[in-house]
């Protein structure tokens, strides 16, 4: 069946099987391979994207269920290709060594971006809770927590600077 999804701000229309998982729609049909997958049981969260702004595990959403919805993936996070175009959470992950193999990273970025949108000053415990549906096998999570704090502080600082400039 034909579906129309707004992916990273761009409207795309494709003909898909009802059983196609949103992960495969993004990866195989749109070639947005930044969204990974790591399990079959809705456990690991490597496939996390935002569906109408809400972080969800895309391996457990049918592509047809996203018809008419907005889907945001890691490819849409940065404003451009320059280092300064990176979203603060992306910058935080780089600055704090919040990634190693990079496989869980896109999902972690989408969840923590959503967290900061909702709670701009999360405590470490809040950050840990927010990513508790996602597995990272490399970092032991510590530097992911630091990365998100880094991003929160960077955004607060930027907001303060803007406030002062006004």
């Amino acid at each position: 069946m034909e579906i129309t999804v707004t992916v990273n701000g761009r409207e795309v229309t494709r003909d898909v099987e009802p059983r196609l998982l949103l992960t495969h729609f993004l990866r195989d049909h749109l070639r947005l391979t930044g969204t990974h997958w790591g399990c079959d049981t809705t456990t690991c969260g490597a496939c996390t994207v935002r569906l109408d702004g809400v972080p969800v595990k895309s391996c457990t959403v049918l592509a047809v269920m996203a018809d008419g919805a907005r889907v945001d993936t890691v490819e849409g996070l940065a404003a451009g290709m320059a280092e300064t175009d990176l979203d603060p959470v992306q910058q935080g992950f780089v600055a704090c060594h919040g990634l190693q193999c990079g496989f869980c990273t896109p999902g972690m970025l989408m969840t923590t971006r959503a967290l900061l949108d909702r709670d701009p000053d999360p405590s470490p415990a809040t950050i840990r809770e927010a990513i508790s549906g996602q597995i990272c096998r490399c970092t032991g999570y510590e530097n992911i927590v630091r990365a998100v704090r880094w991003a929160a502080e960077a955004e607060q600082q930027a907001a303060t600077t803007t406030e002062v400039a006004r």
Binding site: T48, V54, V56, K57, T60, T111, E129, A130, S132, G133
Partner: peptide, 9 residues
Amino acid sequence: IADPLVRNR
């Protein structure tokens, strides 16, 4: 119950 992402859905 499950985890925050599952609870979103």
